[in-house]
Design a protein around this nucleic acid. Structure first.
Lengths: 185, 185, 185, 185
DNA sequence: AATGAATGAGACTTCATTCAT
DNA sequence: GATGAATGAAGTCTCATTCAT
């Protein structure tokens, strides 16, 4: 792994376990196995480093849609999106913890948030097209988007919570169908 | 307003707009119109102050159920809970911003989180009773709880987001029914 | 002595003996007998502290003219100015060392330099009036001012140089008359 | 131009415009069009580099006297020295700015200062010989030297100051004669 | 000889907390 | 109880210097 990625990984690990306020750059450097100065060769400030992690995750999320097949039925596409996204965060629980902690933080810049919004553009189009075909309810698209996002979020919170170890693929299927029922016409 | 509350309000205001990392105690004191030492007469550390705000909000949430009428139909009770909770945060948007930012932060202690969980005990009972009466789906209660919480969260995010001004009471009714449809048997 | 002055004195002492690049704020705090944070209660940055010293010296120089008697002959006034200024720096050799090192430094702001120029306004008037009365040569006033300043500077450099201990009041008298001879009509 | 000189020129330019405290070696390397390592092939430390510039300027100053004709009258020799030196710095204003800023800095080593003193050895001899012939006043030679140096310095400061554009060769002639009048018997 | 990524000591500065008033 | 000047540990960031290429 190159240095830039080591730093990102180290920062992700420490930020999610200790929090922003308890993760000095020196600790990140130590964890990454570099000198502190090296971090600053790649990221001009701590704030930029945090935002880079944010953007990085959002872009990986976006990449999940790269091979979307727009000829499949809307419902199939939706299920694929929904389950892929949940799966992505289950495979990368630190990404989820990071987003939980920093999604609403003023440290995330507007530029980063814009990248975040663009990342879900494919889903917006899927929903719009579903509304057009009267497959999905005629509710404000951004509201539907938030609803779906909230469902993903709540599932992940439940699944990854310390006091749960009963998560299974059946419960995800349940949720997917609950959500589809809620938004379908 | 007494000093203790001034401090809480000042902290809430600054924390939500600037973030934890950019809200020094001196700024809180200034905003509250007190001396820095005064804050320490009420709260031994900054961390305790933050947790106090957290617990305070959770307890106000809990108080929403004080006059719950357990003789009404489950669906009515659910709708009341759901809409009251959304309304509570719409009336207190800073509470929502605070929770968004600090819900997942390591600065919130386990004790505070326990208080938070107790605050929704009434809802747990409502759901369990609903499951018992085969009105609500037989899914893990904590999963349902997270699902409902996620729906509230996503609605509030959408409603309070800067680029939205179309929120109206109809859309909340829509959501309430979407959620009920999703969890009802 | 109050804290603000202790800090100024400590900074002056260390800056003149070690130079700007070898005088950390921590050393100034230690020398001043305060904590580092205390310095920042009075001076927001190191740069401001340096400029404050600069302005402070310039204002003390200006104060030398407060009791100038404008009814005395021009020559007498000039001699008084010249010798008082030399004497001021001989009494405060650290002020001289400070100015030698920082006079031309980019760290001194334009605002500070403006204060410095105002401090010699009385001398400008004396020279202008002398030119008017055809007592002083009709040369650009700022050029005369620099010439006189250069004479003071060179005398002080010589007098305070390590390898000199023959300074005496006669040599100052010599210089004063040399300079007067050079600028008189 | 070879690399060594590029480095010297780059350092001179940046030091005079930004100051020692704001001129990192990396910036010098960039300005010189070399790598940072290359600088260290020629100069073991930043301090040595600065001193090299200092010594270099002093040696160029010394070279001005190489073709001094010791058979000309003392006054002619003095005028030549005086005007050549002023001219040298007017042709190389960065040299002057450099000396203004670093002349008194503790970063200049005693060895460098010794070189500086040797550079004016010819002038010392001229003055001594002038005193011997009772052409120049019988004042401490080093004091005369400083006086003459101060006159040069003050003229250059005035001439090169931002708010001056009236400099002309007549005013230099004036100054030369003022200074000669001041030191001649 | 030339390079520049890597380094970490040390700089400046912040801010939670104390305590004399 | 109320205050805020004082504190210094600890944070972010810089930059002179090294060394593998």
């Amino acid at each position: 792994m190159n240095k830039k990625d080591s730093i990102l990984q180290a920062a992700l690990k420490l930020l999610t376990s200790n929090g922003l306020h308890a993760t000095p750059m020196s600790a990140i450097a130590k964890e990454a196995g570099t000198g502190m100065g090296t971090i600053y060769n790649y990221y001009p400030t701590k704030e930029v480093l945090i935002n880079e992690i944010y953007v990085d995750i959002k872009q990986q999320e976006e990449a999940l849609f790269d091979h979307f097949n727009s000829e499949l039925p809307t419902k199939t596409q939706f299920e694929t999106y929904f389950e892929n996204t949940v799966d992505f965060f289950l495979q990368n629980p630190l990404y989820f913890k990071f987003m939980e902690q920093l999604h609403a933080s003023p440290i995330i810049t507007n530029d980063s948030r814009t990248v975040g919004r663009n990342a879900v553009e494919s889903v917006v189009q899927l929903i719009d097209s579903g509304k057009n075909d009267r497959i999905i309810k005629n509710i404000n698209t951004s509201e539907i988007l938030q609803f779906v996002g909230g469902a993903i979020l709540s599932y992940l919170r439940w699944y990854l919570s310390d006091n749960n170890n009963q998560g299974n693929s059946r419960s995800l299927k349940n949720l997917t169908s609950m959500v589809w029922d809620a938004i379908k016409e």
